[in-house]
Amino acid sequence: MYKILKKKTLAENIIMFEVKAPMVAKSAKPGQFVIVRIDEKGERVPLTICDFDKQLGTVTIVFQVVGASTIKMSKLNEGEFLLDFAGPLGNPSEFVNLNNEELRQKRFLFVAGGVGTAPVYPQVKYLREKGIDCDVVIGARNKELVILKDEIEKLGCRVYICTDDGSLGFKGRVTDFMKKLFDESNRYDDVVAIGPMIMMKFVCLLTKEYSIKTTVSLNSIMVDGTGMCGACRVTVGGQTKFTCTDGPEFDGHLVDFDEAINRQNMFKDEEVRRLHHSRECSCF
């Protein structure tokens, strides 16, 4: 049993839990995820890690309320428990393997869409703690749905907001804004895009034009999360990969997004039972 120490509503239907899970916290690195099960009848829900504190033994997760399991999860309160909390799973972000010297030579642009802002946070935090420059673009439908803006700003990087309705920051899609950034002669070596599949697809189409290496984090459907089921398979550069053990981060220019989007919708019509963990938006 894993205790929920803190619960916070970040935006409508986007909830943050800080969970006591010392073993997971101790080993967690940016880019990794956990599998959560609420109760005996619950699904195994994969959720990316938003933050962790090795000293306190806590792990922070953020989820959007989209299906049966997340609705149930949203009803849990501080002091209550999650039945299962397994992780960290998946490979850490690639840049974790670079030394400071190598990192200092790079300029990162993070592109976060909706609840995908949550997994961007620990990556930016990791880089900022090493004094590496990062710019962050956060996209959301409107002002109310922008999450973690202050937290990311506090890390000391430039944060640009894009909203569909212009209620905050730039009015338009993240890709329109990125184009503006690139054309204003901003040099980036690495783009990291995390958000709805469709957003990542269009970000990759754009960065390909500009020949900028782009990493995406896929939120594929999973059951076990340890390589056992193959539900999360995705075609990367013509080869089948498992998101859980080979990813979750991949070279976005090699990912077959159309297939990935189809696969993500596999259980969509199973309304009540569908898998979620999605970072749905209607930006595209």
Partner: peptide, 20 residues
């Protein structure tokens, strides 16, 4: 493995269980 895991471990064949 996926098919059997959904049915056996996750009990997806029983309606009250959430796994599709």
């Amino acid at each position: 493995n996926e098919f059997l895991t959904r049915v056996n471990l996750m009990r997806a064949f029983i309606d009250e269980y959430d796994t599709p």
